[in-house]
Structures are given as C-alpha cells and as structure tokens.
Simulated scan of single mutants.
Amino acid sequence: MTEKLTPGDVAPDFTLPTADGGQLALKSLLGRKVVLYAYPAAMTPGCTKQACDFRDSLASLKAQGYEVVGISPDKPEKLAKFVERDAITFPLVSDVDKSVLDAYAAYGEKMNYGKVSMGVIRSTFVIDEEGKIEHAFYNVKATGHVAKLRRDLGLD
C-alpha cells in the first residue's frame, strides 16, 4: 500500500473513464479546487448516502469554487446506472484496476465487521488549484461526512 498523502503533496494525476462514457483527467481541473472522494461500491447503502449528500451540497460547494469527483473500482456501466438511479450530478470515475486508488492510499487493508480485508478505504481528498493536497481524510464515515467536510473547510 502507498503511503498516505498529506497536505502539500502533489495529487497523483489520472485520466479515467467516466460514467457518461468520456474521460476525466485531474489536470483538466487545475485552477479549481477539487473534492475527490473514494468510495467502495456504487449503489450500496453507505455509498448511495454519501453520493446523495455530495449531490445535495453540490451547488453550495461549486459556489465556493469546489468541483466534486467520485472514484470507485466500479465499471463505467455500473456508474452510469448509479448516476441515472440517484440523479448524481457530478463526475464519477472508474478505477477498475485500483491503480489510482492505490496512488492515493485509498486501497488496502481495512477492518470491516471485525475482519481484515482488502478494499477501498473510504477517503476524501481536497486538492487545491495548483494540484496539491490541501486535506486528506482517511477512513471517513459515509453518513454525515459531507456536513463534516463542509465544517472542516469553513463553508458552514
């Protein structure tokens, strides 16, 4: 597993397929602040709650200059169903081989129901306009995370 990112680190660049069949490159968002959040699996209860919280906060986050991008190991076809089912209004990117998740230290050993397993570590990264990590939050909770993030960023 890659070492956890810390403020000041350069955010690992990526170009990944999106739910709408396109591609998203992190470098295309330079000049804007980005909230990149890693989640285990589309259309599961916790991930749905988190995505809907981001969706519902998107207008106010954008008003403060933030773009939101979700990343998971789901295939683009599953992400497209998630977007359609839950009216997700921000990009979801597919990292099937988990190389980008690994680069962000958001894939590795985790504890789930008392058992150690390999998987996506629910994490959120705030990337500044120059492509550097401003905040790296690991092992976040799905429920209430967006509200806490907003407080941590001084938006509420």
Results as ranks from 00 to 15, higher is better:
M1L: 10
T2P: 05
T2S: 13
K4R: 15
L5T: 02
A11C: 12
P17L: 09
G21R: 07
G22V: 09
L26S: 08
G31H: 00
V35Y: 05
A41I: 08
M43N: 14
G46C: 09
G46R: 02
C47V: 10
F54W: 09
D56K: 05
S57M: 02
S60V: 11
L61G: 04
A63W: 10
E67V: 14
V69C: 08
G70V: 11
S72W: 10
P73Q: 02
K75W: 09
P76I: 04
P76A: 07
K78Q: 12
E84P: 05
T89W: 02
L92V: 06
L92R: 05
D95K: 03
V96H: 06
D97K: 12
S99A: 14
Y104P: 07
A105W: 04
Y107W: 15
N112C: 05
N112R: 06
Y113K: 06
G114H: 00
S117Q: 12
S117D: 04
I121D: 00
I121S: 03
S123D: 12
T124G: 09
V126W: 00
V126M: 00
I127N: 02
I127M: 11
D128W: 03
H135Y: 13
K141I: 03
K141A: 12
V146K: 01
K148N: 11
R150L: 10
R150P: 03
G154Y: 00
L155G: 03
